[in-house]
Amino acid sequence: MRWLWIDRILALEPGKRLVARKAVSLSEPHLHQHFPATETEPAMPVVPGPLIIEGMAQAGGLLAGHARGFKDDVVLAKLRKAELGFEVQPGAVIEFEATLVAIDDSGASVDGIVRVLDPAWDSPKELGAIDLMFAHVPAERDSLLIAEAFRTLIAGSVQAGGDGVDQMVV
C-alpha cells in the first residue's frame, strides 16, 4: 500500500473478515476528469471501477497482512472477478467487506462484497463482488513509507469504535 484508499475500518475478525469504508468526495481531483462535461453532455463525476477494486484490495490486503502479523508484504497478484452493478457518485460511502478464503506462505485468496450507502437512499445497496489473490513477498524497506498513514487509519478506526480493530495496533 503506497497510499490509503480507505477511511475507516469498521470491523476486524482476525484471519476471517474485515469491513472498511471509503467516503467519496468531489474534492478528489480525478472525479473532475471522470467524466468532464462535453459540448453536448453535462459532467458526470463517478468513481472509476479500478479505484473501487483498489479499495477492496486494501481491505483484503490488510486482512491478509494482519493474519500473518504483517511479516511479509502482501501484493495484489490476481483479480479473479470484479462485477460492479452501477455507478457511484460523490457524497456516497463505499463499504468493502473482505473475507479470507485461504492463506499460506505463498499467498492469500480473498472474496469481497462491495456495498454503497448513498444519502439519497433509505438503505445500502449491494454494488457487486470482487475476488482477489495476493502474493506474499519479503517485506521491503520502503513499505514503511505508508506506516504512518496506516497507524493514523488504525487509530482513527479504534477511536470510532471499530469492532476488533484494536487488535490491529502495531
Binding site: A77, K78, V101, A102, G107, S109, A135
Partner: peptide, 21 residues
C-alpha cells in the same frame, strides 16, 4: 504462476481437503 496457488486454494475448498505446498 499465481493461478497455481488459486487452484490449490479452490480445490481445497471444493473437496474439503488440505493440500500441502
Amino acid at each position: 504462476s499465481i493461478d497455481f496457488l488459486d487452484i490449490v486454494f479452490r480445490l481445497e475448498q471444493a473437496f474439503d481437503i488440505k493440500i500441502e505446498q
